[in-house]
Design a protein around this nucleic acid. Structure first.
Length: 402
RNA sequence: GGGUCGGUGGCAGAGCGGUCAAUUGCAUCAGACUGUAAAUCUGACGACUUCGGUCUACGGCGGUUCAAAUCCGUCCCGGCCCA
């Protein structure tokens, strides 16, 4: 690849706007990339979650871009750091996980992101490392040595800690160790670039400091913006009800994207698809944001489940929710003669208790072949219900069979 | 070590002897509406129920009382201040 082509590709990545913070500077990072040297990138992930979400996906897609440019990419599983829990989020101590649990989670992740990150490339696959490999070997003396590179005041600068101090909420000693550990990861792997979300910059900076002190090397930090609603600034997260996990099947993934607020369309299109910027602009001009969202949902589903599934999921969504038709294929659940409807709804997994099932019926959320039912004492009999479609709420369908 | 405040439903956080299965917000669920599973509005939101109730729950254990999330004792856990 000649110089011009390289420059164009590098700028394409940088101009997309996903990366918003560069340390020491964007200019220096760009020059480093243009120098043509093979660099070692890494990103870390906490293995406590069973599924990755679209925020991870965004960051991994950027790394894949760098991998395609010939750089080395390490996907670090923070199995050791995961034992502490990143103080960035509110929870403090976490449950210690066994290696087997960590590996089980990771193999699920790998399955979720195998279409955006190439683990199988013959020449330059994405490498996987576990930080217990080195962190687990440090002894107390090593830890003291590491800790002596930082002051309590430096740690307290972290906005999170500062906030907790002001609010009189606890900060545990071991939480101070988190940035140290994450920092040591950089040293142990001898990386050139760490990628993270903007909420992780503090931790990444600890690594930069350690790299300078221990290896006399200038590590770059590139930070991606967190996916947030353009209008309200609300982050995509589970507690806001907008988190989208990658282990969803095609239909549910499609639906989860359709239920995003409109302000999320553009950030998601930029961060989580490969649609070109100019095409995204066109999409944003569409009169009905729903159509832009349909396209977005299709593009994202396509990445994880393929084109065919994406088409099906779109059709399913339109039929089921826009036109309120029945889906083509409905799962079946066996009923027994004389079984209570309430009981059946619970067994089908549409309510967690009979009380909840009762409530759904009372609120008009349950229907049989389109006929709302109102009798909570309804029982199922073969001659009346065999083969009928039970609908609970908007999205749950099941065929009653005997 | 001393003092002091606190531990409540998925989370945050009220209640401080009966009217408490416990106000409210977030999350969740159902309905209406819509451009969508957006937004907004309405309702629900411990379990079981013959729909009258029954049971289990406000850190653990024990007590006072006709009656305790609420009072007392004790234990466990935590915050803050002082040392």
């Amino acid at each position: 690849m000649d110089k011009k082509e390289l420059e164009q590709k590098v700028d394409e990545i940088l101009d997309r706007g996903i990366l918003v913070e560069f340390l020491p500077t964007k200019e220096e990072f760009r020059n480093k990339l243009l120098a043509g040297e093979k660099l070692r990138f890494y990103i870390g992930a906490d293995p406590t979650a069973k599924a990755l979400h679209l925020g991870h996906a965004q960051n991994l897609m950027v790394l894949e871009d760098f991998r395609r440019l010939g750089h080395e990419v390490i996907f670090l599983i923070g199995d050791f750091t995961g034992m502490i829990g990143d103080p960035s989020d509110k929870s403090s101590a976490r449950v210690k996980q066994t290696r087997a649990e960590v590996e089980a989670n990771f193999s699920a992740w790998k399955d979720q992101v195998k279409n955006i990150l190439d683990f199988e490339d013959k020449e330059n696959p994405v490498l996987i490392k576990y930080n217990s490999e080195w962190l687990g070997k440090l002894n107390f003396g090593d830890v003291l040595e590491l800790a002596s590179n930082f002051t309590v005041q430096q740690m307290l600068e972290r906005d999170m800690f500062e906030k907790r101090m002001n609010e009189g909420r606890p900060i545990y000693i071991h939480e101070f160790m988190y940035p140290l550990m994450q920092g040591y990861d950089s040293v142990a792997m001898d990386v050139d670039v760490e990628m993270c979300g903007t909420d992780q910059i503090f931790n990444a900076l600890a690594g930069r400091t350690l790299m300078q002190k221990m290896k006399n090397k200038d590590k770059f930090i590139i930070a991606a913006k967190l996916i947030a609603d353009e209008k309200t600034g609300m982050l995509m997260s589970k507690s806001n009800g907008t988190g989208v996990f990658l282990d969803l099947d095609a239909n549910n993934l499609f639906g989860a994207i359709m239920s995003q607020p409109d302000g999320m369309i553009k950030p998601l299109a930029i961060g989580c698809t490969r649609i070109s910027l100019s095409e995204i602009e066109k999409l944003m001009q569409l009169e009905n944001p729903r159509d832009a969202k349909l396209k977005l949902a299709w593009e994202i589903v396509k990445i994880y489940h393929g084109k065919e599934r994406a088409d099906e999921a779109r059709e399913y969504f339109i039929n089921t929710f826009s036109k309120k038709e029945l889906p083509d294929e409905v799962a079946e659940e066996k009923a027994t003669e004389g079984e209570e409807m309430l009981n059946f709804i619970v067994r089908a997994g549409f309510a967690s208790s009979k009380g909840e099932a009762r409530r759904k019926i009372e609120q008009g959320g349950v229907s049989i072949d389109g006929q709302k039912i109102s009798d909570i004492k309804q029982t199922l009999t073969k001659d009346l219900f065999n083969g009928k479609i039970l609908k609970v709420g908007k999205k749950n369908f099941i065929k009653i069979v005997f």
